[in-house]
Design a protein around this nucleic acid. Structure first.
Lengths: 347, 347
DNA sequence: TTGAAAGCGCTAACAC
DNA sequence: GTGTTAGCGCTTTCAA
C-alpha cells in the first residue's frame, strides 16, 4: 500500500478529492460523502468541520467518479439536424432549459443530416453513457433509430415519429389540413407543396400524405408533380419550382413543409419577380420567431414549442427514473394556424 | 472476494463490460484494452478472438470509466446567452462541428443572461470535468469569469473579451467604424446607437466607445442620450426610442449593436409608421443568415463566424493538449461591411 | 505476447 | 455517528 504523499511537484496540478477533504477534516470519506449528499447522519460539529475543509480546498465532487458507481450520468443527448434552422435552435434552447431544471446537462450534436455523422455522434453519446437521447426533427434513416432502440437507452423523438419509441410531435394531418383549408377558403384551387430535403423522412411523408388528403377533402385532385423538394442551402436551387411557376396553370399557393423553407421561398420567388402573396400565397409550418417579423409576415402552422420541449423532457425522465419497460408513449399535439400577410386571395 | 456470477435476474440489465469481453474471449482485460485502443502488441489470432467477442456482446467502452482514470473527458462546455439569437445558434453549430471533428463532444448551456443560472450551469460543467469551456457572447458578470480562470480549466471567450483568458472576437472598433463611416458617407449626421441588454457588458461598452470615437473621427459630436437600450423581448419596449425618433431633430440613422436587435428594430419602427431606410437608416452587427433575406435586407457588419468558431476550438485544444501555462492568446478578427437595403441617404 | 495488480474518485452496505 | 471495505469499468506499469 503506497502512502499518498504529495510529492510537491508544482507542475502536477491535482484537483482536491474527497480523500483530501477527509484528511483535512479528520474524518472518513463516507462522512464527507454523507455531508455532500445530505444523507446518513452526521453531527453538526463534524458537518461544520467538513464544510470548512471543502471551502478551504475548493473541493468540487467529481461527477465522472460518481457516475461510474451510480451508473447514471445525468447527461442527456440532443441530436439535432441543423441549429441554423431556428425551429431546431429554439427547441434545443427549451429542452436545455427543462432538462437543467431537473439537474440534467445537455450534450448537443448537430448532424446536418449526414447519416455517418449521425451514427458516430450517437456512438459518442452512448459511450459517454448519457441517460437518454432526444432526437429532434430527426432526419436520419430508420436504421439508426432501430439500432438505438435495441440499446435499451431511453429515446424520445421530438417533432418526428416512430411507432416503437416515445414520441411527441404535432399532428401533421391537422396542421396541413389547417393550411390547406385556409388557402381553399381564400379561393385557391391550384396548390403546391414544397418540402425541405433536410426534414425527417417520416415527417415529410406524413405531411405529403396529409397534403394530398386535405386537397381531396376539399374536392381538389392532387397532382404528384406539384409536390417538390427545395433545398434552400443549395445556391441556384429551385429551378424546377420556378419552371412550375412559369407555366400557365401555375399554382396560386404553396404550402411549405417548414418555415425555414417558406421564408427562403419568399426570397426565391421575389428574386424572380413573383410577388407574395399577390402572385402566390405561401403558408409555412413551425411558427418560428422570424416568421412573425412584420417584414416577413408568414402565415404559418405554429407548433407548441414549449409543450413539445416539456413533454420531451418529461418522457425522457419517466423512462430514466422509472424503468424502460412501459410501452411507447405517443403524444400528438395540436398545431394552430397563424394568419399573417403571406396569404391572400388568388389574382 | 465475491465471484461474479450472473444471477440471471432478467430485470437487472447490465451492459457488457471489458471483463465480459475478456471472459468470453479467454484473455485478460489488459489485452482487450490493448486491442480496443490499438496499443501494445497482440497476436493476430487473439485480436481476432477479442474482436469477435466484442461484436457478439455488442460491447461499447464506458467513457465514464475511461475518463476517470485518464483524467480527461473529451467533453467541452459551451455557455451561450440565447440560442434563439441566430448568431449564438450559428456559432454553437460551428463550434460543435469543429469540436466533434477533433473527437470532442459538446455540452451546451443556455443561460438566458441570468447570472444565477450561469453560475450553476458552469458548476455542473466543472463537476462533469469538461476539458474546456467556451463562453460565447458571454453576458455574465466578470466574477464568474475570474472564478473560472482560478479553476485552471481552459477557457476561451468567443465574441467577447477578457484580458486574462484566451479570446477570439471581432474588432469592435473597426466594425463600428465601418458602420458609422458608411452612414456618414451616405450623408447622415444624426446617428443613434441602440444596444441589446442581453449583450455581454464588455462588448457593449466596447461598441459604445467605438461608436463615440467613430463619430468624433467623422467630426460629429456624440450625444450620450442617443445611445439607448432596446430589449426586443420585452413587449411594449422601445418607448424611449420612439420618443427620440418623434423629436424634430431625430436621428436619421441607427447603428444597432447586433442583428437580432436591428431586425426587431425594423419591426418596431415600421409598426410606428417609420419607414426603413426612407425615414431612418439602420445598420446591424453580426451578419446572421436572416439579415440576408431579401425582405429584411439588413446592412450589417458581418463577423467571420467560421473563423471565430475554428479559432475558438483551436485555442481550447491548445490549452487542453499542451498545458495551461502559456499567456492568454488574444485574437482580433476583421469584420466586413455588407451593404444592403436598410441604409440610404437621409431624406 | 500476455496477465496480475494497483489505482482513478466516488458510493453504499455493513460494522463498530 | 462514523469508519471499513468492496466495488463501478477502465488504463497502465511491471512481471512473467
Amino acid at each position: 500500500m503506497t502512502a499518498k504523499i504529495d510529492d510537491g511537484a508544482p507542475s502536477a496540478f491535482r484537483r482536491p478529492t474527497i480523500n483530501d477533504v477527509a484528511a483535512l477534516s479528520g474524518v472518513s470519506k463516507s462522512t464527507v460523502s454523507n455531508v455532500m449528499r445530505g444523507t446518513g447522519s452526521v453531527s453538526a460539529a463534524t458537518r461544520e468541520r467538513v464544510l470548512e475543509a471543502i471551502a478551504a480546498l475548493g473541493y468540487r465532487p467529481n461527477a465522472t467518479a460518481r457516475n461510474l458507481v451510480l451508473r447514471r450520468t445525468n447527461l442527456i443527448g440532443v441530436v439535432v439536424g441543423d441549429l441554423a434552422n431556428a425551429f431546431d435552435a429554439e427547441l434545443v434552447k427549451r429542452i436545455e432549459q427543462c432538462a437543467s431544471a431537473h439537474e440534467y446537462t445537455t450534450l448537443v450534436c448537430n448532424t446536418g443530416g449526414h447519416a455517418d455523422l449521425e451514427a458516430s455522434r450517437i456512438e459518442a453519446l452512448l459511450e459517454h453513457r448519457v441517460d437518454g437521447i432526444a432526437l429532434l426533427d430527426f432526419s436520419g434513416d430508420r436504421a439508426v433509430i432501430s439500432k438505438l432502440l435495441g440499446e435499451r437507452v431511453p429515446v424520445v423523438m421530438v417533432s418526428c415519429w416512430s411507432d416503437y419509441a416515445d414520441c411527441v410531435a404535432v399532428d401533421d394531418m391537422v396542421g396541413i389540413e389547417l393550411a390547406v383549408r385556409h388557402l381553399v377558403e381564400l379561393g385557391h384551387e391550384r396548390i403546391a407543396h414544397v418540402v425541405d430535403p433536410l426534414m425527417e423522412a417520416g415527417t415529410r411523408r406524413a405531411r405529403v400524405a396529409a397534403f394530398e388528403r386535405a386537397l381531396l377533402r376539399s374536392g381538389i385532385a392532387p397532382r404528384s408533380e406539384w409536390t417538390l423538394v427545395y433545398d434552400a442551402n443549395e445556391t441556384g436551387g429551385g429551378s424546377d419550382l420556378l419552371a412550375l411557376v412559369a407555366r400557365d396553370d401555375h399554382p396560386t399557393a404553396i404550402v411549405a413543409a417548414n418555415d425555414y423553407t417558406a421564408i427562403r421561398l419568399i426570397a426565391l420567388l421575389e428574386r424572380n419577380a413573383i410577388a407574395v402573396p399577390r402572385d402566390i400565397s405561401l403558408v409555412g409550418f413551425d411558427g418560428i420567431d422570424v416568421s412573425a417579423l412584420s417584414r416577413i409576415g408568414l402565415t404559418t402552422v405554429a407548433q407548441p414549442r414549449d409543450d413539445l420541449a416539456r413533454t420531451a423532457v418529461d418522457l425522457l425522465r419517466a423512462r430514466i427514473e422509472s424503468g424502460y419497460d412501459a410501452p411507447p408513449a405517443q403524444h400528438r399535439l395540436k398545431p394552430r394556424l397563424v394568419v399573417r400577410g403571406s396569404t391572400g386571395p388568388p389574382r
